[in-house]
């Protein structure tokens, strides 16, 4: 049950998408998200979808994994789709009318575009986390935010906090499962019973979980101090990120596709 949470879950591989410089990948992902909103027309979204499918194909990530990352947001998609479908009004005659509900051709179009856009958004950002290990990812974020440290923003500390948080997600998930099993063994109704009973049954899980999280934090702080951790100043890195020729080439290819998505607005007005 808890294993289905895929945020920050890395799917190791050796494809060009995996080996690309993480900084470039982050920037491209941001650009992709922006383009999804700029090129929000049928052609633009078609290009975005095909492009993303292509990248998933290259990185050899199984379809099941993509489906798993989209599954949790399906209710949101369905909710917005229903709202859009019934609340938007079009200019022409409604296609369908019943009581206060009217459906116009425009609202159908908008609903589909909206749904595709959300799916692309989630699948696109998931591609980044699937192909980049969390540690590399925060490293890249630290590098990208480095200029902000001139403004006395604690960039290194923020990145370290993110690394630690990401590092402990799987550990805490595992811990939660263990505690849940232990309480289930004592008859806690976590997988059966009414909704109210299930919510109440969370207390015996959350309290031990918090206590163990605090304990882990103490232990980690102690271990870091024992190794003389003193913040980012004067700290060198084991793995230096270096831009390679391939990163530039792939980056440019993506940029061309993004320009195409943007240009699609010339043919179709963006909604």
């Amino acid at each position: 049950m808890l294993r289905d949470i895929t945020i920050g879950q890395h799917f190791p591989g050796n494809s060009p998408v995996h080996t690309m410089d993480p900084r470039v990948k982050i920037l491209l992902t941001i650009a992709y998200i922006v383009m999804l909103f700029i090129g929000s027309n049928p052609l633009g979204l078609a290009i975005s979808t095909v492009f993303l499918a292509l990248l998933y194909g290259i990185s050899k990530i199984p379809l099941k994994l993509i489906a798993r990352s989209i599954k949790p947001i399906l209710p949101i998609i369905a909710f917005t789709a229903v709202l859009n479908l019934f609340l938007l009004s079009g200019s022409g005659e409604p296609l369908f009318q019943w009581w206060i509900f009217r459906i116009y051709p425009e609202s159908i179009e908008y609903t589909i575009i909206m749904a595709v856009r959300i799916i692309c958004l989630i699948a696109g950002t998931s591609l980044l986390t699937y192909t980049t290990s969390p540690i590399v990812l925060t490293d890249a974020i630290e590098r990208l935010l480095y200029p902000l440290s001139r403004l006395h923003l604690p960039v290194h500390e923020l990145a370290m906090m993110m690394t630690i948080a990401l590092r402990f997600i799987p550990t805490l998930i595992e811990e939660t499962e263990k505690i849940m099993n232990a309480q289930k063994a004592r008859g806690a109704q976590l997988d059966s019973g009414t909704l109210k009973q299930r919510v109440q049954a969370l207390i015996p899980v959350l309290i031990p979980l918090f206590i163990s999280a605090f304990r882990r934090a103490d232990e980690l702080a102690m271990a870091m101090e024992c190794r003389c951790y003193h913040g980012g100043e004067g700290r060198t890195r084991l793995k230096q990120l270096r831009l390679r020729a391939s990163d530039v080439v792939y980056g440019l290819i993506c940029a061309v596709v993004f320009v195409l998505i943007g240009l699609s607005n010339l043919w179709f007005p963006s909604i």
Partner: peptide, 11 residues
């Protein structure tokens, strides 16, 4: 069933 390190289940 008593799991390994059961003391973590106390709440």
């Amino acid at each position: 069933l008593v799991f390994q390190y059961p003391e973590y289940q106390l709440f």
